[in-house]
C-alpha cells in the first residue's frame, strides 16, 4: 500500500481494494520501457460477459467489459 492515509479517500470514491490495486498495477505497467510496456499492457486484456439476474431471468444482454479500470480517468492524474 503506497500510502496509508489514502484509504478513506478511495473508499469514499466507491472503489474496492481490488480496483485500487489494479490502478496501482497499471501505473507500474505504464512505467515500463517500451517493448515491455506494450507487451504487459497487451497481456492484461479484460473481457467477459456479465449479466444480472432477476426473477429467474437474466436481465438484458450482459455488458461485455473492455475497459478494465472504470476509473481510467484517474490514471491520467
Amino acid at each position: 500500500m503506497a500510502s496509508n492515509a489514502a484509504v478513506p479517500f478511495w473508499r469514499a470514491a466507491g472503489m474496492t481494494y481490488i480496483t485500487y490495486s489494479n490502478i496501482c498495477a497499471n501505473l507500474v505497467r505504464n512505467c515500463l520501457k517500451e517493448p515491455f510496456k506494450a507487451e504487459s499492457i497487451h497481456r492484461e486484456k479484460v473481457h467477459f460477459n456479465l449479466s444480472k439476474w432477476a426473477d429467474g431471468k437474466p436481465q438484458k444482454p450482459g455488458t461485455s467489459l473492455q475497459d478494465p479500470y472504470r476509473f481510467s480517468n484517474l490514471i491520467e492524474i
Partner: peptide
C-alpha cells in the same frame, strides 16, 4: 487483471 475485475 481480468479475474480481479470480475471479482470486483
Amino acid at each position: 487483471a481480468q479475474v480481479s475485475v470480475l471479482a470486483d
